[in-house]
Design a protein around this nucleic acid. Structure first.
Lengths: 189, 189
DNA sequence: TATTTACGTGAACGTTTGTTCATGTAAATA
DNA sequence: TATTTACATGAACAAACGTTCACGTAAATA
């Protein structure tokens, strides 16, 4: 692990614990046992640090969902794979995922606009999958907006709870539980 | 509307747009067309302002859910009423609801601890309703943690989307859509 | 009328913030 | 060996922050 990688990891953890605005360069330097000025050997500015994290994880979601959409499988299977993608990223990159939820507001224009646009595009991709499922008679015909965002919010649970007391279950079992909820709801029969 | 009420409303809106840390006392004064020092005729500190908002809305959720739990109705009906409560609060107090989601991290100890405890208690109350439904054979027997937080995340959607482009539907229709999703999922039969 | 209360003002405070600077060292490269 | 590169240092900067101060005004209260 290079010095820069260690710096990136420590910063990410700190920003997650205290929030981006509350995490100072001096905090990071202190955790790293180095001088403040040293940080600027790794980055240009505190803002660019946040941008690196956010656009990095954003791209991961996009490339994953693109592969899913382009594949020749049923809408239900696509939705199932999207669930799986979110779970995998929660397990592999919990801190980056948390930033995506909590800290994107701290971006400044024009990066903020770019980020929001990317996120909207992601939501639209998911929406398309659900829409196709409805048209094919596989999914209930609900309000498309509400269905999509209720679905995405369900997946957001992954981050929230995992960040406070990490889930013990294995990813496959989590996927089974969430898929059950998403596809057939909470009512018995 | 008294001066203090106007101050509280303007602050709330600003904090929602820019975030608590990014909203300065000078921002608030500027929006209010008054001097900075004037703000301190209304509040003791910036922190106390956040505390007022957060514990206020937190109490509203608690008293609503307490009434629901104590009432002599089925588990399904209780869950339906909880959904309705969240929707009503989203419509009536969207800004406070957003703070509850986004800004609670900015509380400082010991208030932070109190808040987190209150929130956990709320989650436990919802969890109890779901647990009873499972025991009575009304709900599927899923992992209780996952079921509860997936459910709560579904309701969180209400805030997220409403804050960006407010939902046009009336509360009753929203409730119908979300209840369908929660109780019977997205799959057609 | 006298006095309290609510609201308003502008300057100043002490701290903390991100960032830069000039300078240094030790290792990799040429 | 000479020179570039990567990392390190401590002091300093200007800006922004929450908060306080002494003072002022006008209306409500006694």
């Amino acid at each position: 692990m290079t010095k820069k990688e260690r710096f990136l990891a420590v910063s990410l953890k700190l920003i997650n614990e205290k929030g981006f605005k509350a995490t100072t360069i001096r905090d990071i330097a202190s955790s790293l046992n180095c001088e403040v000025a040293n940080i600027y050997n790794y980055i240009d500015s505190k803002q660019s640090l946040l941008e690196t994290y956010l656009f990095g994880i954003s791209n991961e979601f996009h490339s994953a969902v693109d592969t899913i959409i382009d594949s020749n499988i049923s809408s239900e299977k696509k939705l199932r794979l999207i669930i799986r993608t979110h779970i995998d990223l929660m397990v592999k990159k919990p801190y980056e995922l948390a930033l995506l939820v909590n800290e994107w507001r701290n971006l400044k224009e024009p990066k903020l606009g770019t980020f929001v646009a990317e996120r909207n595009t992601y939501e639209d991709k998911v929406k398309t999958v659900i829409k196709q499922g409805m048209e094919q008679g596989v999914f209930k015909v609900l309000d498309l907006e509400i269905a999509t965002f209720t679905f995405l919010s369900t997946l957001r649970w992954l981050h929230d709870k995992n960040s406070e007391h990490p889930v013990q279950m294995n990813p496959i079992e989590i996927e089974r539980q969430i898929s059950t909820f998403v596809f057939s709801g909470i009512s018995k029969k």
